[in-house]
């Protein structure tokens, strides 16, 4: 456990190549009292959009002690309709207040006339959607004044209209907007199984130079209408063995990368979360060691 007195007075300006955890209200007290040795914390931006109160007070304290990743779940970057300016200004307010080391959002949409649909919905990959997403990422980065990391989605359906491969789609967005990518390894597994793709091939093609953060999570499993295996991105259990193996495969290409354990439903006690972080961090350290040995050998 890191002694508070020896903690560097200044936090780094980017997330460290370590494991991080989602900061949950039930753990505010524990984190501030015990100051566990965690690489960084991540919060959902939308949970900190109230005017005041305990969430901001706790987050202010935590952000003084740990690097912070701000993760948006409601910007609806993949929507046909324009981005919500009010929501963009709320995000900017948060970024200015907490100066997070990273800001990320999803390649998905969630807005409709009847209101916010509260899920990360899929979009077809076409020239039209590509142009739309590029405009939205440009606008978002300009509005919040910070580079954005765009996360690959987990999906349950495909679109007949899609003409562009998902990785080409993400790579083109990054190339045209300068945004980074958030590689969600669990999403890769979920989408690969759901669409009969090879997750390792996906990983081998992913533009590693763009990756600013990795997400890991636990999936649920069911079957679809034809009895085929269907994985659900559930965030309510430990990281499964096949996802951990895929993560190791990814790390061999990316090298050490800030890695978040996502556990948002049925949140366990802090020790259980910390054990998950330790599992991920051991793999980061192993990869760092492997690279050091290679460098020395050369």
């Amino acid at each position: 456990m890191m002694d508070a007195a020896t903690r560097p007075a200044r936090l780094p300006d980017r997330l460290p190549n370590r494991a991080g955890l989602g900061l949950k209200p039930e753990h505010y007290g524990h984190v501030l009292e015990h100051r566990p040795d965690i690489g960084f914390f991540e919060v959902h931006a939308e949970n900190y959009m109230g005017a005041g109160g305990p969430p901001h007070r706790y987050l202010e304290s935590v952000a003084k002690l740990y690097p912070l990743s701000l993760h948006g779940v409601g910007l609806s970057i993949g929507a046909a309709r324009p981005l919500d300016r009010v929501h963009l200004s709320r995000l900017r307010t948060l970024v200015e207040r907490y100066k997070p080391q990273s800001f990320s959002e999803h390649l998905a949409w969630s807005t409709h006339d009847t209101g916010f649909l509260n899920d990360l919905l899929p979009l077809p990959y076409t020239d039209e959607t590509l142009a739309r997403v590029i405009d939205h990422v440009d606008e978002a980065q300009q509005a919040i004044g910070q580079r954005l990391l765009l996360e690959n989605p987990s999906t349950y359906v495909l679109f007949e209209d899609s003409t562009i491969d998902e990785i080409d789609f993400l790579e083109e967005i990054a190339a045209r907007t300068g945004c980074g990518l958030l590689l969600d390894v669990n999403n890769v597994m979920v989408s690969s199984v759901n669409h009969r793709l090879d997750p390792h091939t996906y990983m081998d093609r992913f533009p590693v130079g763009r990756i600013g953060e990795i997400h890991l999570a636990g999936y649920d499993e069911t079957v679809d209408g034809a009895g085929e295996r269907l994985l659900i991105d559930a965030h309510g259990s430990p990281v499964k063995a096949d996802v951990m193996a895929l993560y190791e495969h990814a790390l061999a290409r990316t090298g050490p990368v800030p890695t978040l354990i996502e556990w948002d439903n049925d949140v366990p006690d802090f020790a259980t979360l910390q054990a998950e972080a330790v599992r991920a961090e051991a793999r980061i350290a192993r990869e760092a060691g492997r690279r050091n040995r290679q460098t020395r050998a050369a």
Partner: peptide, 15 residues
């Protein structure tokens, strides 16, 4: 309209 699966058929359980 327009959603499908790898086997080429939309699936209600997935939606």
């Amino acid at each position: 309209a327009g959603i499908t699966t790898a086997r080429g058929q939309a699936d209600a359980a997935r939606f």
